[in-house]
Amino acid sequence: MKRAYLLYILALSFSFISCKTQNNTTVKTEVKPTINYSFNADNLLENIKELSSDKYEGRRTGTEGAKKAKNYIVNQFKTLEVKPIKGSYIQPFAFGNYQAENVLGLIKGTENNRKHIVLSAHYDHEGVKNGQIYNGADDDASGVSALFAFAEYFAKNPPKHNVILAAFDGEELGLKGAYHFVNDNVIQQRNIVLNLNMDMISRSEKKELFAVGTRYYPQLKPTIENFKDIGSVDLVIGHEGLTKGDDWTYSSDHAAFHKANIPFIYFGVADHEDYHKPTDDFINIDQQFYKDAVQTIITVFNQFDSLDL
């Protein structure tokens, strides 16, 4: 008995080092590698916190809050040395009674000087309703803040293709900013080879980040299908209309590119309890998931950037 007890103690001690023992069955513990983010994770969180704060009053198109958000994005682009397109970061447009403004920045590629990849997110949200501010932390301050993370990354790792960082206005009112961009010829459609759209990427109960678009552009599927997951994020192909009522093809700004036959991948999470509610606040995002999601999208971008699109 004493010998058996001693062996038990030794086995138990060893389990704390390399494994855990349950019911006399040895199971190896999974040790996740430390993620070396290719952007400043603190800045990422600070930017989403800022853009989803009350001072921007929900960023509804045409309001003072939206103008403040536009100015914040422009200042970030300047600080991160993102270049304007044709001398200006602002692409104004109007629809109905609304005066709107896309914010566009350019990262010049090292090899493909005429081909452009558009990284997009919308900065507008629902504004103020019944005295409550709809701050839209996940929808879509998360995507806009990811644009800044991309800019940080490109400062040290310039892309091969030209990259447009597009913060679109008017998404909540019918994807107006994206359609204006695609049809305005600020960049000719034939020179846009891919759109990666980010809309709601900062929280998921199931830790799933969906990639939509490979059904229509099968040349993009191997990159997504063979992707090795990063951190807490499970990158999943889905919501492509293969099941009735489950189609995100036209759910966000990527629809404007798709209708122009420009390949796209849309990154987003499933609707959650705070979707389009005044509780979509910074405090409710999943910070670890969000950082891992942004790193995931940057890594996917790199794989696409290496291709002859």
Rank of each mutant, 00 (worst) to 15 (best):
M1V: 04
K2V: 15
L7P: 00
I9Y: 00
S13G: 06
S15R: 04
F16Q: 05
C19M: 06
N24K: 05
T25Y: 00
T25K: 09
T26G: 02
T29E: 05
E30S: 02
V31C: 04
P33Q: 11
N40G: 08
A41E: 14
D42L: 09
E46N: 12
E50S: 08
L51E: 13
S53K: 03
E57C: 01
G58S: 04
R60S: 10
R60Y: 13
G65V: 07
A66M: 01
K68M: 09
N71I: 01
Y72K: 10
K83Q: 04
K83H: 05
K83P: 04
S88Q: 00
Q91C: 02
F93D: 02
G96F: 01
N97P: 02
Q99Y: 06
A100F: 09
A100W: 12
E101R: 09
N102Q: 01
N102Y: 05
V103I: 15
V103R: 03
L104T: 11
L104V: 14
G109H: 00
N113A: 14
K115F: 09
L119S: 08
A121R: 11
A121M: 09
D124F: 06
D124L: 09
G127V: 01
G131P: 00
G131M: 01
Q132K: 15
N135D: 03
A137C: 14
D138F: 12
S142E: 05
S142W: 04
S145V: 03
S145E: 08
E152Y: 07
E152S: 01
K156T: 06
K156M: 11
N157L: 00
P159F: 06
H161S: 00
L165Q: 04
A167R: 10
F168K: 03
E171H: 12
E171P: 09
E172H: 05
L173M: 12
L173N: 04
G174C: 04
K176N: 13
Y179A: 14
F181E: 08
V182E: 04
Q188F: 03
Q189C: 08
R190Y: 01
R190D: 14
N191F: 10
V193M: 06
D199S: 14
K207I: 02
L209K: 06
R215I: 14
R215N: 15
R215W: 05
Y216D: 15
Q219S: 15
E225G: 07
E225V: 12
D229N: 15
D234L: 11
I237F: 14
H239T: 00
E240G: 09
K244L: 11
G245E: 11
D253R: 00
K259P: 01
P263C: 03
H272V: 10
E273D: 14
D274C: 06
D274M: 04
Y275P: 12
H276M: 11
H276N: 08
D281H: 06
F282N: 00
I283L: 12
I283M: 06
I285A: 03
Q287R: 08
Q288W: 02
F289V: 10
Y290W: 02
Y290H: 05
A293C: 09
F301K: 06
S306M: 07
D308L: 08
L309M: 06
